[in-house]
Protein backbone atom coordinates (compact mmCIF):
# COMPACT_ATOMS: atom_id res chain seq x y z
CA UNK A 1 0.00 0.00 0.00
CA UNK A 2 1.22 3.43 -0.89
CA UNK A 3 1.68 5.35 2.30
CA UNK A 4 1.15 9.09 2.12
CA UNK A 5 4.38 10.90 2.88
CA UNK A 6 3.59 12.84 6.04
CA UNK A 7 5.95 14.43 8.55
CA UNK A 8 5.50 13.82 12.26
CA UNK A 9 4.31 16.80 14.26
CA UNK A 10 5.04 18.21 17.69
CA UNK A 11 1.30 18.79 18.01
CA UNK A 12 0.59 15.06 18.12
CA UNK A 13 -0.50 13.48 21.36
CA UNK A 14 1.45 10.47 22.56
CA UNK A 15 -1.80 8.72 23.52
CA UNK A 16 -2.34 5.44 21.68
CA UNK A 17 -4.56 5.88 18.62
CA UNK A 18 -7.79 3.94 18.18
CA UNK A 19 -7.73 1.12 15.66
CA UNK A 20 -8.53 1.87 12.03
CA UNK A 21 -11.66 -0.25 12.46
CA UNK A 22 -12.85 1.87 15.41
CA UNK A 23 -12.29 5.07 13.48
CA UNK A 24 -13.86 3.89 10.24
CA UNK A 25 -16.91 2.00 11.49
CA UNK A 26 -18.24 4.31 14.23
CA UNK A 27 -19.15 7.60 12.60
CA UNK A 28 -21.65 10.40 12.85
CA UNK A 29 -22.06 11.45 9.22
CA UNK A 30 -25.80 11.99 8.85
CA UNK A 31 -25.51 12.40 5.09
CA UNK A 32 -25.22 8.59 5.14
CA UNK A 33 -27.74 7.76 7.88
CA UNK A 34 -28.50 8.35 11.55
CA UNK A 35 -26.85 5.25 12.96
CA UNK A 36 -23.13 5.23 13.69
CA UNK A 37 -22.86 2.07 11.61
CA UNK A 38 -24.57 3.66 8.57
CA UNK A 39 -21.68 5.68 7.11
CA UNK A 40 -19.42 2.65 6.68
CA UNK A 41 -22.27 0.89 4.87
CA UNK A 42 -23.32 3.71 2.56
CA UNK A 43 -20.40 6.10 2.08
CA UNK A 44 -18.86 4.01 -0.71
CA UNK A 45 -21.54 5.54 -2.98
CA UNK A 46 -19.80 8.91 -2.79
CA UNK A 47 -17.60 9.97 -5.72
CA UNK A 48 -14.62 11.93 -4.42
CA UNK A 49 -12.66 12.29 -7.66
CA UNK A 50 -12.71 14.84 -9.21
CA UNK A 51 -13.02 17.21 -6.24
CA UNK A 52 -12.57 20.91 -5.85
CA UNK A 53 -13.14 23.45 -3.13
CA UNK A 54 -14.74 26.79 -3.94
CA UNK A 55 -12.99 29.46 -1.92
CA UNK A 56 -14.75 32.79 -1.93
CA UNK A 57 -16.05 35.75 -0.01
CA UNK A 58 -13.49 38.14 1.44
CA UNK A 59 -10.40 36.69 -0.25
CA UNK A 60 -7.91 38.12 -2.73
CA UNK A 61 -7.91 35.09 -5.02
CA UNK A 62 -11.37 33.53 -5.08
CA UNK A 63 -12.03 30.52 -7.24
CA UNK A 64 -12.34 26.81 -7.53
CA UNK A 65 -9.29 25.07 -6.13
CA UNK A 66 -8.81 21.52 -7.36
CA UNK A 67 -7.89 18.99 -4.68
CA UNK A 68 -4.66 17.96 -6.42
CA UNK A 69 -3.68 21.60 -6.77
CA UNK A 70 -4.39 22.19 -3.08
CA UNK A 71 -2.30 19.18 -2.06
CA UNK A 72 0.58 20.15 -4.37
CA UNK A 73 1.08 23.37 -2.42
CA UNK A 74 1.01 22.17 1.18
CA UNK A 75 3.14 20.12 3.57
CA UNK A 76 1.32 17.06 4.84
CA UNK A 77 1.86 16.13 8.46
CA UNK A 78 0.63 13.34 10.64
CA UNK A 79 -1.36 14.85 13.50
CA UNK A 80 -2.42 12.40 16.19
CA UNK A 81 -5.26 14.24 17.88
CA UNK A 82 -7.72 13.54 20.62
CA UNK A 83 -11.27 13.60 19.22
CA UNK A 84 -14.16 14.34 21.56
CA UNK A 85 -17.77 14.02 20.44
CA UNK A 86 -20.47 16.19 22.02
CA UNK A 87 -22.19 12.87 22.85
CA UNK A 88 -19.42 12.28 25.44
CA UNK A 89 -17.40 9.59 23.69
CA UNK A 90 -13.88 10.04 22.43
CA UNK A 91 -11.15 8.53 20.30
CA UNK A 92 -7.54 9.24 19.39
CA UNK A 93 -7.09 9.63 15.64
CA UNK A 94 -3.91 9.77 13.52
CA UNK A 95 -4.93 12.26 10.85
CA UNK A 96 -2.85 13.25 7.86
CA UNK A 97 -3.39 16.83 6.85
CA UNK A 98 -2.12 20.37 6.55
CA UNK A 99 -2.75 23.57 8.39
CA UNK A 100 -5.88 25.36 7.21
CA UNK A 101 -3.95 28.63 7.57
CA UNK A 102 -1.73 27.70 4.62
CA UNK A 103 -4.74 27.28 2.33
CA UNK A 104 -6.38 30.49 3.56
CA UNK A 105 -3.13 32.38 3.07
CA UNK A 106 -2.90 31.03 -0.45
CA UNK A 107 -6.36 32.41 -1.20
CA UNK A 108 -5.41 35.66 0.54
CA UNK A 109 -7.65 36.70 3.43
CA UNK A 110 -8.86 40.27 3.12
CA UNK A 111 -8.31 42.49 6.18
CA UNK A 112 -12.01 42.83 7.03
CA UNK A 113 -12.69 39.08 7.22
CA UNK A 114 -13.54 37.79 10.69
CA UNK A 115 -15.07 34.35 10.16
CA UNK A 116 -14.69 31.32 7.91
CA UNK A 117 -17.77 29.40 6.75
CA UNK A 118 -17.59 25.82 5.47
CA UNK A 119 -20.05 23.68 3.52
CA UNK A 120 -20.24 19.95 2.92
CA UNK A 121 -21.06 18.56 -0.50
CA UNK A 122 -24.77 18.42 -1.33
CA UNK A 123 -25.34 15.44 -3.60
CA UNK A 124 -28.49 13.56 -2.53
CA UNK A 125 -28.14 10.87 -5.19
CA UNK A 126 -24.91 9.74 -3.52
CA UNK A 127 -25.74 10.76 0.04
CA UNK A 128 -28.93 8.93 1.07
CA UNK A 129 -29.28 10.87 4.32
CA UNK A 130 -29.74 14.07 2.31
CA UNK A 131 -32.86 12.55 0.73
CA UNK A 132 -34.41 12.38 4.21
CA UNK A 133 -35.57 15.37 6.19
CA UNK A 134 -34.50 16.56 9.60
CA UNK A 135 -31.56 18.71 8.58
CA UNK A 136 -31.43 21.70 6.25
CA UNK A 137 -28.73 20.41 3.88
CA UNK A 138 -25.97 21.04 3.07
CA UNK A 139 -24.23 20.73 6.43
CA UNK A 140 -22.61 24.02 7.42
CA UNK A 141 -19.97 24.90 9.96
CA UNK A 142 -17.84 27.88 10.80
CA UNK A 143 -14.89 29.21 12.77
CA UNK A 144 -13.74 32.59 13.90
CA UNK A 145 -10.77 33.62 11.74
CA UNK A 146 -8.25 33.34 14.60
CA UNK A 147 -9.48 29.81 15.31
CA UNK A 148 -9.19 28.94 11.64
CA UNK A 149 -5.64 30.31 11.46
CA UNK A 150 -4.49 28.46 14.59
CA UNK A 151 -1.77 25.89 13.84
CA UNK A 152 -3.79 23.10 15.51
CA UNK A 153 -6.59 23.57 12.96
CA UNK A 154 -6.02 21.31 10.00
CA UNK A 155 -7.61 20.13 6.82
CA UNK A 156 -7.30 16.36 6.92
CA UNK A 157 -6.98 14.28 3.77
CA UNK A 158 -5.68 11.06 5.28
CA UNK A 159 -5.93 8.66 8.15
CA UNK A 160 -3.34 6.17 9.34
CA UNK A 161 -1.08 7.19 6.46
CA UNK A 162 -3.68 6.37 3.80
CA UNK A 163 -6.27 8.39 1.95
CA UNK A 164 -9.24 9.37 4.07
CA UNK A 165 -12.05 6.80 3.86
CA UNK A 166 -15.33 8.25 2.64
CA UNK A 167 -17.14 7.71 5.95
CA UNK A 168 -14.52 9.90 7.66
CA UNK A 169 -15.15 12.86 5.36
CA UNK A 170 -13.18 12.18 2.20
CA UNK A 171 -11.52 13.66 0.39
CA UNK A 172 -10.95 16.71 2.56
CA UNK A 173 -12.34 17.69 5.94
CA UNK A 174 -11.75 20.07 8.80
CA UNK A 175 -10.27 18.92 12.13
CA UNK A 176 -10.40 21.30 15.10
CA UNK A 177 -9.22 19.14 18.00
CA UNK A 178 -10.27 21.38 20.90
CA UNK A 179 -13.90 21.55 19.77
CA UNK A 180 -16.67 18.96 19.77
CA UNK A 181 -16.53 16.74 16.73
CA UNK A 182 -19.51 18.24 14.93
CA UNK A 183 -17.44 21.38 14.26
CA UNK A 184 -14.99 19.30 12.19
CA UNK A 185 -17.07 19.37 9.02
CA UNK A 186 -16.54 16.63 6.44
CA UNK A 187 -16.28 16.43 2.64
CA UNK A 188 -15.87 20.18 2.20
CA UNK A 189 -16.71 21.84 -1.12
CA UNK A 190 -16.99 25.47 -0.11
CA UNK A 191 -15.05 27.86 2.11
CA UNK A 192 -16.25 31.45 2.46
CA UNK A 193 -14.49 34.26 4.32
CA UNK A 194 -16.96 36.66 5.86
CA UNK A 195 -17.23 39.47 8.38
CA UNK A 196 -20.16 38.01 10.31
CA UNK A 197 -20.78 34.82 12.23
CA UNK A 198 -21.96 32.24 9.69
CA UNK A 199 -25.01 30.01 10.12
CA UNK A 200 -23.97 26.60 11.44
CA UNK A 201 -26.14 23.52 11.12
CA UNK A 202 -26.47 22.33 14.72
CA UNK A 203 -26.77 25.77 16.20
CA UNK A 204 -29.58 26.49 13.73
CA UNK A 205 -31.31 23.22 14.66
CA UNK A 206 -30.95 23.40 18.45
CA UNK A 207 -29.50 26.74 19.57
CA UNK A 208 -29.98 25.90 23.25
CA UNK A 209 -27.97 22.69 22.93
CA UNK A 210 -25.27 23.54 20.40
CA UNK A 211 -23.39 26.81 20.20
CA UNK A 212 -21.16 28.38 17.59
CA UNK A 213 -18.00 27.84 19.65
CA UNK A 214 -18.60 24.26 20.86
CA UNK A 215 -15.29 24.19 22.72
CA UNK A 216 -14.79 20.97 24.69
CA UNK A 217 -15.41 22.03 28.27
CA UNK A 218 -16.06 19.71 31.23
CA UNK A 219 -17.38 22.67 33.23
CA UNK A 220 -20.21 23.51 30.83
CA UNK A 221 -22.77 20.74 30.56
CA UNK A 222 -24.87 20.00 27.54
CA UNK A 223 -28.49 20.74 28.53
CA UNK A 224 -29.27 17.03 28.47
CA UNK A 225 -26.08 15.48 29.85
CA UNK A 226 -22.91 16.14 31.72
CA UNK A 227 -19.73 16.87 29.79
CA UNK A 228 -17.50 16.21 32.81
CA UNK A 229 -16.40 12.77 31.64
CA UNK A 230 -16.15 10.77 28.44
CA UNK A 231 -16.12 7.15 27.33
CA UNK A 232 -13.09 6.22 25.24
CA UNK A 233 -14.30 4.07 22.38
CA UNK A 234 -12.20 0.91 22.20
CA UNK A 235 -11.10 1.05 25.82
CA UNK A 236 -12.89 -2.17 26.73
CA UNK A 237 -16.22 -2.81 28.37
CA UNK A 238 -15.05 -2.28 31.96
CA UNK A 239 -12.91 0.80 31.27
CA UNK A 240 -15.52 3.19 32.66
CA UNK A 241 -15.17 6.88 31.96
CA UNK A 242 -12.27 9.28 32.01
CA UNK A 243 -12.37 12.94 32.95
CA UNK A 244 -12.82 15.32 30.03
CA UNK A 245 -10.03 17.87 29.69
CA UNK A 246 -10.71 21.54 29.14
CA UNK A 247 -10.35 22.37 25.44
CA UNK A 248 -9.92 18.62 25.04
CA UNK A 249 -6.42 18.86 26.48
CA UNK A 250 -5.30 21.70 24.17
CA UNK A 251 -5.82 24.40 26.80
CA UNK A 252 -2.21 25.61 26.75
CA UNK A 253 -2.36 26.21 23.02
CA UNK A 254 -5.85 27.70 22.61
CA UNK A 255 -7.14 29.16 25.89
CA UNK A 256 -5.74 32.58 24.94
CA UNK A 257 -8.16 32.73 21.98
CA UNK A 258 -11.00 33.03 24.46
CA UNK A 259 -9.54 35.22 27.19
CA UNK A 260 -12.19 37.48 28.64
CA UNK A 261 -15.04 35.47 27.10
CA UNK A 262 -17.74 33.87 29.24
CA UNK A 263 -17.54 30.26 28.08
CA UNK A 264 -20.90 29.48 29.68
CA UNK A 265 -22.58 31.98 27.41
CA UNK A 266 -20.38 31.26 24.39
CA UNK A 267 -20.82 27.49 24.51
Amino acid sequence: MAKIAAKPSAYSTDAAPNTLKDITSYNNFYEFGWDKGDPVKHAHQLTTDPWSVEIGGMVERPGSYGLEDILANVTLEERIYRFRCVEAWSMVIPWVGFELASLLNRAGVQPGAKFVAFETLYRPNEMPGQRAGGIDWPYREGLRLDEAMHPLTIMATGLYGEELPNQNGAPIRLVVPWKYGFKSIKSIVKITLTDREPVTTWKALQPREYGFYANVNPEVDHPRWSQATERRVGAGIFAGREPTLKFNGYEDQVAALYSGMDLRKNY
Binding site: D221, P223, R224, W225, S226, A228, T229, R231, I237, F238, A239, G240, R241
Partner: peptide, 18 residues
Amino acid sequence: WLDMGLLWGQALADLYKR
Protein backbone atom coordinates in the same frame (compact mmCIF):
# COMPACT_ATOMS: atom_id res chain seq x y z
CA TRP B 1 -21.60 0.17 35.55
CA LEU B 2 -20.34 -0.04 31.96
CA ASP B 3 -21.67 3.25 30.55
CA MET B 4 -21.51 5.56 33.57
CA GLY B 5 -18.48 3.81 35.07
CA LEU B 6 -20.15 3.80 38.51
CA LEU B 7 -19.98 7.60 38.67
CA TRP B 8 -23.11 7.76 40.78
CA GLY B 9 -23.12 11.52 41.18
CA GLN B 10 -22.93 12.13 37.46
CA ALA B 11 -25.50 9.40 36.80
CA LEU B 12 -27.94 11.06 39.22
CA ALA B 13 -27.33 14.47 37.65
CA ASP B 14 -28.01 13.01 34.20
CA LEU B 15 -31.20 11.44 35.55
CA TYR B 16 -32.42 14.91 36.35
CA LYS B 17 -31.42 16.25 32.93
CA ARG B 18 -32.82 13.46 30.83
